[in-house]
Amino acid sequence: MAEMSARALARFEAMAAAARRRRRLEAALPWLVILGMFGLWEFVVVAFGIAEFVLPAPHDIVRAIIKWWQPLMQDSLTTLYSTLAGFGLAILGGVLLGIAIGSSAMVYKGLYPVLIAFNSIPKVAVVPILIIWFGIGIWPPIITAFLISFFPIVVNVATGIATVEPELKDVLRALGARPRDIIVKVGLPRAMPFFFASLKIAVTVAFVGAIIAESVAPNAGIGRLMMVASSRFDVPLVFAGLVVTGFMGIVLYWIAEFIERRTTGWATRGQNQNLATGG
């Protein structure tokens, strides 16, 4: 009996240890992939003797980052600022419009085709118009970031609200709930996971929008830095800009994901334990 339970205990220990190892590996995996990618890159550039102005090796990029860290820093902060400003506006407008579209079939029918058409327009094409209206300055990147990240938020919030189960609506309506009650008590909380899923997309595309505008209307920011660098054939600096941009994108994504997990754990808990713990 004692021997049995000892054996069972050992087996349990072994299983727990295996699970811990797997979790550690999962946490380290992204870093290993990134390291491996840069390693391969370094190897290919050195082995085939690729010229620096075609494809700089990672160590050239690191050198460029160290050399130009001050302008890189300043321009990243400018871009970050425009991105977050546009993104904030997109959240505000997106949530309001999403609620309107999700809760009213009339608004949906009227606005959806317009929104689709609008979303199909490449935002690069809009930047020159923005320059005519606002001049070269801080506004074109902010507005481009807003325009590009607005759509996913609207669609997701609207979907969350529009897909409330009819039975649940019946329960509340039979109690004398007003349409506003249904949106506040059920629609909005239900839309939250959709909303946060869209934030993760929106925050990364907002970045893209801001940088596009900065490259078309070079005033400040990482987009302008890369334009200037490429016009001087300083390819390592261009890549340095790309690396910094990618890094900022990941950080913003992480922040969005962190907030998502803290606020809408109920959406993943219970269905997929791994999502909540292992993530």
Binding site: E165, E167, L168, D170, V171, P189, T264, A267, G270
Partner: peptide, 9 residues
């Protein structure tokens, strides 16, 4: 109803 339609949050 047939389904409990509780609010998961």
């Amino acid at each position: 109803f047939q389904s409990p339609t509780l609010l998961p949050w």
